[in-house]
């Protein structure tokens, strides 16, 4: 430990700058000596800036930057607090019960006399749409990522990467419109069984939306695999397929799993596509040709509709939001944890 007396002593203001009379002054070249003197004098011109002011500014700035950083933490806690408070309000209402919410199989908040608040039809809708999206986007995205990272010549990459970036930048409402105006008519042409609003159409559009995410995150994971591993495999006489599928892919597996989880999180939270294309009837179904309603679509319906603020159906949307938040937060936490461990492995 430092002694107290020591710590309060500031650096002495000794000017160690050599003066013409200093011990070594008579040595060395004359020219350099003169130029050094000039420099010493030039460096002392002007007014020194205030030390205390500098320390104070530094401290002020440091604190304001720290405040910026706390905003994101405040955001998280405020979200959690709001959702908790409003959800508790919801369950305190006479029409709602936690048992019904967790185990009821009907979600009919807006239908006449007999209202039911069982979350499962909405969860089912969300899972169904996300499953369709995943079934489409995960394989296509992964294969594209393998191609980009292991096969593609740089010219192809130069074209493909911007295309994927454009796909990633398209607003989700545009995908919703695309689902409504192209995918749904296409599906109905393919088979009569598809409803005008259906889970498959919304799911495919969500799939297109998450495709660039799957692709770029998986590619990052594949590229993180050390080059030495690939070279080792090639040196044993492997084909490109052997290397990419039997060596690189397993090595990048946890990174790819994390990519999948983060992409599915986006699918679960997606709102505009399902609000436009999936329909508005919550039901327990596994048939993607049926109309369905997701948690997010229900929230849009409540917040844009005529539900009176404070009414039971209005409050129910907070309970739904809470479930949605818990689901996505859980997946994100797991995904990021896997990703962090994967990065540590190769850094």
């Amino acid at each position: 430990m430092r002694p107290k007396g020591m710590s309060s002593v500031p650096l002495p203001n000794l000017s160690g700058l050599p003066t013409p009379g200093s011990p070594n002054a008579d040595q060395g070249g004359l020219g350099s000596q003169r130029s050094g003197d000039l420099l010493a004098r030039a460096a002392q011109r002007g007014r020194p800036r205030s030390g205390p002011a500098r320390v104070l500014t530094e401290r002020l700035i440091r604190w304001s930057l720290f405040l910026c950083a706390t905003l994101s933490v405040i955001t998280t806690f405020t979200i959690i607090l709001i959702l908790l408070k409003e959800t508790v309000t919801f369950f305190a209402m006479p029409e709602a019960s936690l048992m019904d919410f967790l185990f009821g199989l009907e979600w009919t908040p807006l239908v006449g006399a007999e209202v039911h608040f069982g979350i499962w039809p909405l969860v089912c809708g969300t899972v169904l749409v996300s499953a369709v999206a995943a079934a489409f986007a995960l394989p296509v995205g992964l294969i594209t990522a393998v191609y980009l990272s292991e096969y593609a010549p740089s010219k192809v990459r130069a074209v493909l990467k911007p295309i994927l970036e454009i796909l990633a930048g398209v607003p989700t409402v545009v995908y919703g419109f695309f689902a409504l105006s192209v995918i749904t008519p296409g599906l109905k042409w393919f088979h009569d069984g598809f409803a005008s609003f259906n889970a498959a159409s919304a799911g495919l559009a969500v799939g297109i939306m998450i495709l660039p995410i799957v692709c770029s995150l998986s590619e990052d994971a594949l590229r993180a695999v050390p080059k030495a591993l690939r070279e080792g495999a090639y040196a044993l006489g492997s084909t490109r397929f052997d290397v990419s599928v039997r060596v690189v892919l397993p090595a990048a597996l946890s990174g790819i799993v994390a990519a999948f989880l983060l992409a599915i999180t986006r699918a679960i939270g997606e709102t505009m596509i399902v609000a436009l294309a999936a329909g508005g009837r919550p039901q327990l179904t596994v048939n993607p040709a049926n109309e369905t309603q997701t948690m997010t679509a229900f929230m849009v319906q409540i917040f844009t509709g005529d539900a009176q603020a404070g009414s039971v159906e209005y409050q129910s949307s907070y309970a739904v939001a809470f479930v949605l938040f818990v689901m996505t937060l859980g997946l994100t936490l797991v995904g990021n944890a896997i990703l962090r461990r994967f990065r540590e492995e190769y850094d």
């Binding site: 994101s72 933490v73 405020t78 709001i82 917040f303 949605l324 938040f325 996505t328 995904g335 990021n336």
Partner: peptide, 25 residues
């Protein structure tokens, strides 16, 4: 580390949930 983890996880929160935050806050 907590702030860092928090930011990474915030990036995964669905945008509609931010709507609820904006409405209340």
């Amino acid at each position: 580390r907590f702030i860092q983890t928090n930011i990474r996880n915030l990036a995964g929160v669905p945008s509609i949930v931010y709507g609820i935050l904006g409405l209340t806050a």
